[in-house]
């Protein structure tokens, strides 16, 4: 299990291969990659700054990863989240999970990204044609957690 927070970009293909790690017990890997879009809430986006809470960020991601590992039989779980300046089209976040079977990999990766979006201390500030603006959290992100509360 690796948890990384970094300013530099990353190659999702390399991340996916490292996640598998030539482990012959792996029957399934599922990866979620989030990207910077060039348009959001009616404005063109020229880039963004991602702020975080050093120390707490790593701790929060570790807690989410630990809980996912407790709920599903995982072989490996990797999380990489970028901070600092990001350009449209660049990857922001990688969540990758391997397991013997697909259901655990699908569900655990979905669980991790849902919790990351609502429980990890990151904040996006977009550069738009109308000036910089903080991205507002969506109620739907919190509502997404409901599907996990009853599970297992």
């Amino acid at each position: 299990m690796t948890i990384q927070v970094q300013t530099g970009t990353f190659d999702p293909g390399q991340m996916l291969n490292a996640l598998h790690g030539r482990h012959a017990g792996v029957g399934a890997s599922v990866a979620f990659v989030g990207y910077v879009r060039d348009f959001n809430d009616g404005e063109e986006v020229a880039g963004m700054l991602l702020e975080h809470y050093p120390g707490m960020t790593e701790k929060a991601l570790q807690k989410i990863a630990d809980e996912a590992s407790r709920r599903w039989p995982l072989i490996r779980l990797d999380i990489l989240h970028r901070v600092g300046r990001l350009e449209p089209g660049e990857p922001i976040v990688f969540v990758g999970v391997t397991s013997a079977h697909r259901d655990a990999a699908f569900e655990a990766s979905h669980y991790v990204i849902d919790y990351l979006k609502t429980r990890a201390p990151f904040w996006k500030k977009e550069d738009t044609g109308a000036g910089p603006r903080w991205v507002e959290a969506r109620d739907s992100d919190n509502a997404a957690l409901d599907k996990w509360s009853a599970a297992q």
Partner: peptide, 25 residues
């Protein structure tokens, strides 16, 4: 460095943070 609610007790030496809803991912 653990998320909590406002009823959380406070002790001398604690590190507290206040922030708007998070928007990572």
């Amino acid at each position: 460095q653990d998320m909590c609610d406002l009823q959380e007790p406070l002790r001398d030496g604690d590190e507290v943070a206040f922030f708007p809803p998070v928007t990572g991912g």
